[in-house]
């Protein structure tokens, strides 16, 4: 079985992330770039299938600038067999539509039985790219799963819905997206880091993929930064703090 994991490089959520006030795009210098945690969980799920079944091939795929190669290197050191990097200056600032069209074309040329992605990225948070890819490729999408069983004859999973969960299934090929309920990812080990250097990374351009040139059609019109919050009163409890807080709440008409 061939599993392609879609990996996005994002600014580390543990740092202060910034937007460029002129373009509304990410200020890539503001915070370190990392593999989005949700994509590490998707990769972990794929690697567990490979651990149990040696015939499994795991490919990590990203669309991103030159330095997204670091994200792919990490996935290879964790255990992915190979990687695909779509890199092209014309993709800078791509919106979800352009991103999905490009990834769909790359998936068509790479081939797969299963595509695994995150339910939403931590920067764009749109949660739409995998469903757009599914529509381009006319494939079923099992989205927002909290668990999945992937077998040669199909995928079963439990989807987190708005007011409960759903048991869902689809035949292969299929696309699925994982939520944070999936287990945390393993750390790369020493052997993994050494062998990663020898694993193949294919780079692809927009021209090679034959994706129609069209620009992104979503435009940012303005960006405003909110002033940071200031700390207020801090009292050390000496037995009276609860009363003081109750008075504060009453005085501010909050109770």
């Amino acid at each position: 079985m061939k599993i392609v994991v879609l990996v996005k490089q994002v600014p580390d959520t543990a740092e202060e992330r910034k937007l460029d006030p002129e373009t509304g795009q990410l200020d890539r210098g503001a915070a370190d770039s990392v593999v989005d945690e949700i994509n590490e969980r998707a990769l972990e799920a794929a690697l567990r299938i490979k651990d149990a079944n040696k015939g499994t091939e795991v490919v990590a795929m990203t669309m991103g600038p030159d330095d997204a190669a670091q994200a792919l290197r990490k996935t290879l050191s964790m255990g992915a067999d190979s990687a695909v990097h779509i890199v092209d200056d014309s993709l800078s600032g791509a919106d979800t539509g352009r991103t999905a069209a490009t990834l769909a074309a790359a998936l068509r040329s790479t081939g797969f039985d299963v595509v695994m992605a995150g339910n939403e990225s931590t920067d764009g948070r749109a949660g739409v790219v995998p469903a757009m890819i599914a529509e381009h490729l006319q494939l079923p999408l099992l989205g927002s799963l909290i668990s999945a069983e992937i077998a040669d004859d199909g995928v079963r999973g439990v989807r987190q819905g708005e007011d409960g969960t759903l048991n869902v299934r689809a035949g292969l090929p299929a696309i699925l997206t994982v939520t944070e309920r999936f287990p945390e990812a393993r750390f790369p080990n020493f052997k993994g880091i050494l062998t990663a250097k020898r694993k193949p990374v294919t780079t692809l351009t927009v021209a090679e993929l034959g994706v129609p040139a069209g620009q992104s059609r979503t435009v940012v019109l303005s960006v405003a930064e909110r002033p940071p919050r200031a700390a207020g009163r801090k009292v050390i409890d000496d037995g009276t703090a609860a009363n003081e807080l109750a008075e504060f709440l009453v005085a501010n008409r909050l109770v």
């Binding site: 919106d95 979800t96 539509g97 999905a100 764009g124 948070r125 749109a126 949660g127 739409v128 790219v129 995998p130 469903a131 757009m132 599914a134 529509e135 381009h136 999408l141 989205g143 927002s144 989807r159 987190q160 819905g161 708005e162 992104s216 059609r217 979503t218």
Partner: peptide, 20 residues
């Protein structure tokens, strides 16, 4: 969960763009 998957597929099907 359902709404954004529907929006995403619709965008591809009818040539729309998503504001998320």
């Amino acid at each position: 969960v359902d709404g954004r998957e529907a929006a995403a597929r619709l965008a591809v099907r009818v040539g729309g763009s998503v504001l998320a």
